[in-house]
Design a protein around this nucleic acid. Sequence first.
DNA 1: AGAAATAAATTAACAGTGTTATTTTATTTT
DNA 2: AAAATAAAATAACACTGTTAATTTATTTCT
Lengths: 199, 199
Amino acid sequence: MVGRNRLQSDKDNLRQEIMDVARELFVAEGFRSVSMRKIADRIGYSATTIYLYFKDKNDILAQICRQTFERLTENINAIYNLSDNPLEKLRSGMREYVYFGLKNPSQYELVFIAPLPLEFEPDGINNGTAAFDTLRRVVGECAAAGLLKSADVELTSQTLWAGIHGVTALLIQHEGFPFVDREKLIGSVIETLIAGIRT
Amino acid sequence: MVGRNRLQSDKDNLRQEIMDVARELFVAEGFRSVSMRKIADRIGYSATTIYLYFKDKNDILAQICRQTFERLTENINAIYNLSDNPLEKLRSGMREYVYFGLKNPSQYELVFIAPLPLEFEPDGINNGTAAFDTLRRVVGECAAAGLLKSADVELTSQTLWAGIHGVTALLIQHEGFPFVDREKLIGSVIETLIAGIRT
DNA sequence: AGAAATAAATTAACAGTGTTATTTTATTTT
DNA sequence: AAAATAAAATAACACTGTTAATTTATTTCT
């Protein structure tokens, strides 16, 4: 019984260690150029041992993303409890979304930009859409308060999502492009969107 | 002399044939899962022959994208000559941009969504920004006509780009997500953006 | 025309990838 | 201490993009 628990905790430790090392490498060198053997070297095990803890390479990233996006949802929910003004909630929530993406580009990329492994998308998209669900809720509050031009909450929510995803994705992927000041661009996108949906 | 010309044209033919086959495969199976050997099989040559016509695998896609995005710029310029109303130009141009992306998802993905090979980005981004330059020009016209809230043409252009890129990228990459009607969503994004930048 | 030069294409090979099956080593249970 | 189980490692497979060396075809020159 005691042995069983210690074993379980050792397994969990190694599993988390793999995830930590993998995340670090993915962020530094990009998912594609990190090999199973490279991760294995870092943790001091053979490459095939990783397969005892994860289904495959995609699964490692999937689990990393799950952890990361739980934090995004928490952050956004926390922000939504700070204000009473629904439009203000919307503004702050969108800001948090964009900055979260810029702070976790590797994970944002996988979940929202380039979710290539199809079998894994369900998990990824579910993670991401938890944050989207919160956005929709607040859009609903704005609509209920009569602040919006359109009564179609779903349409408005997806419109906003497209906008903030767009600026996030561009800033992450096109570092070479001569963007205006980040802060300014993000602010402009958010204010333009809000101005566009208001009555 | 004659021989030289015939040879040149044969080279061009094979080069174009490689591009045609590659484009077809890339669109059908995705860039990553198409191997040089698979392309080679289809054209009836050995894999290494491709390297006589293209620097590497990325280069094939780069050339395909160049051809494709020349068309986007042409299309947008043509549209801009149809109307005199600058806001109307903007609307139609943005529509064309999004629909072009949806019609050429593979190329749009490489140039704007996931331009992974860094050395190749200069070409890709230059291609893409030719279209962006046209967008900026029309935003300038709108500003000159006193139709815009902000006098910062660059900022406004980038804001619009973020918006239309966002909806294009989402629709391309997240087929599984329950989006509202495409047409409706695209229209909503464009109208929201325009409403947001107008005086 | 044939010989020399050049271009085009192929074969062989390398170092790397993710992954599976098999075998060895370590730990736990009887 | 023996048997059973879990953990880890080794060997191997089928693939990848790409380079170097070699063969085949075409063009140029005498």
